[in-house]
Design a binder for these strands. Structure first.
Lengths: 343, 343
DNA sequence: CACCCACATGTAAGCGCTTACATTACCAAG
DNA sequence: CTTGGTAATGTAAGCGCTTACATGTGGGTG
């Protein structure tokens, strides 16, 4: 076999463990041992090998190692997209933790794909485990992956049979936030956002309903709009045109809240006087607008880290947990709710 | 060799091309051909194979393919971090284009690493080529990678010998923006941000200087602060304390501009009356604050896509371009500069 | 001084794919 | 009925690593 490896070490991508071994006058096993640093190698030999590596500019071929050790040493992460701070922060948390665990991260963004199923299948091919954001439209494929025995964890999604879930708390914080609005005397509070766009939004609406029930009030039906800036603007315009009557808007996320608030203000409405507006996520903009946006901060970074963690443990053979892990969130009161807070 | 592959197909991760072949009653070559879809296979055989794949839940082992075809079919991307829309957008552009080119993307965030050099070396092990953001502190290693013959492109950095560069235009737009400020009659304009934090910032300052020279004015020394929110706040406070006198602030990016503007306004200063503030990047917040922030929009998404593109072509054997490719930027005039624009 | 044991290193068998080349089956032409 | 060509499939040689096992080398012991 060795014959093939005696090709010129100068060739593009040419240095292999064979050329390094030859150059250092040792066997490939020794080179591998030096590079992995797991078995002891005598210091002189070590130095010879390191010198040869340096000299030849040797870069190991990860695929060969993966094949031999039967691990990719990589985690996959499937996210819808990265606009807005939420997913970006999640990714940062995931990447940081994965780095600590010596795992590479392979990223797939679903919004840029035409054939999502193929993309996920392809991803499964090169990672040991996959974290999928809950609202990504791929449940069927996740199941297929499962069958094919790759550990999967769902972030902010519903735990399924054999699929772990990690998420941030939604229901109680939403109940608290909605209660806060009601305690400001608001009686025509509307929930803006589609509860069906994911289990997290679903729970936020559930919290909104619960807060009403707590006070013996009736909760209105949600205004089902997508969680995007443009949709917020459109909704606000419909509201200005008289389509909705409300003295408070509990928006499913900050993006929605901010665009609605801006549109309302531009039309001369007083926020929070005429109508209070609150959001969810605590994006950077939330503290720059006037009035400051009351919202809920999620431990997004930690959520990403947790996902990476769980993936790693599943890969290490730990059994999946049947219950979802939930991280606590935090109500951030500024003044768009009607409070006279500092900001 | 085949002996080893006859292990139970039920085993975790167990299905291999061997078990599929056996199950379908064909050779592994045929399975491979069906899966790659490159050579013709008779329809009945094809169906048998596909059925076996489905039945066994076969997921190919990417590493084995990579080893055989001698390509990782993956691009690496090295970014500082992802807070703020800039890097996130860049990443989205990169990922989208990479997806079109059927390349996976492996992400490395430098801010989360303690040993960057190791991280990059490790990355080189599993991708065909690497795009590095210019300000990432790794020039020495990039060079080493080069020696090891992995194509590298630098994003928003200086082109080096054998390393391609792609970036957005900075100098001319900065000259235009600074000129705009001066044409508003501002005569004590300060550049806030450290020109040494990267070639792009360097060029923005150069444009600022050029605009002054164009009008026969003297440009002030830059106020060297890092491009982060906290630094902006700190600077604004020093300014309020009288450490600086200025009627216009040209900030190196929006994050800086926004935090400065907010701090100044909270202290009762009129923007742009007392002092005009402009930024760079056109982040989402820029259009929500009042006055709307005048800034410069970069084609960040396209920049990411371009990097992915170039990487792919370099991998395909195209020779590196010696000149950097530069994408045009666009001045976005709102009202923080002194204009009475709509927003 | 023979013997046993660490210790350092080498040998070689895979890991699961792709693909060049060989083989087979079948049919048309001579 | 041979011959040659083509289409479909099989055979087997790698791809570059890791690692179990084998081998060699020097001391301590008894």
């Amino acid at each position: 076999m060795a014959k093939q490896h005696q090709a010129s070490p100068e060739a593009r991508q040419g240095a292999t463990i064979y050329s390094v071994a030859e150059h250092a006058g040792v066997s490939i096993a020794t080179v591998s041992r030096v590079l992995q640093g797991v078995t002891v190698v005598s210091e002189p030999t070590r130095q010879k090998v390191l010198a040869a590596v340096e000299e030849l500019g040797y870069v190991a071929l990860g695929a060969a190692r993966s094949l031999a050790v039967r691990h990719h040493e990589a985690h996959g992460l499937v996210l819808p997209e990265l606009s807005g701070p939420y997913y970006a922060e999640l990714l940062m948390g995931f990447e940081a933790r994965a780095a600590e665990l010596a795992q590479s991260v392979v990223l797939v963004l679903t919004d840029s794909r035409t054939d999502l199923a193929a993309a996920v299948r392809q991803l499964a091919t090169r990672v040991d485990a996959i974290a999928v954001f809950g609202s990504a439209p791929i449940s069927a494929d996740v199941v297929r992956l499962l069958r094919a025995k790759k550990p999967v964890v769902v972030i902010a999604g519903e735990p399924q049979d054999g699929v772990e879930a990690v998420s941030a708390e939604n229901l109680e914080s939403a109940r608290e936030l909605a209660g806060h609005l009601l305690d400001h005397g608001k009686r025509r509070a509307l929930f803006v956002g589609d509860p069906d766009s994911g289990p997290d939004i679903h729970n936020r609406y559930a919290g909104y309903v619960a807060a009403h029930r707590d006070r013996g009030l009736d909760a209105a039906e949600p205004v089902r709009v997508a969680l995007r800036e443009a949709e917020g603007t459109a909704f606000a315009q419909r509201m200005l045109a008289g389509a909705y009557e409300a003295d408070a808007l509990m928006c499913a996320n900050d993006e929605l809240a901010l665009s609605i608030m801006a549109t309302l203000q531009d039309a001369g409405r007083d926020v929070p006087g005429d109508v209070a507006v609150v959001g969810w996520d605590d994006v950077m903009t939330a503290r720059y607008v006037r009035p400051g946006l009351t919202t809920v901060r999620q431990p997004v970074h930690e959520l990403g880290a947790l996902a990476a963690d769980r993936l790693h443990e599943l890969v290490s053979g730990e059994p999946p947990r049947s219950r979802a892990q939930t991280l606590p969130t935090q109500l951030v009161v500024r003044s768009s709710c009607g409070c006279r807070a500092a900001t």
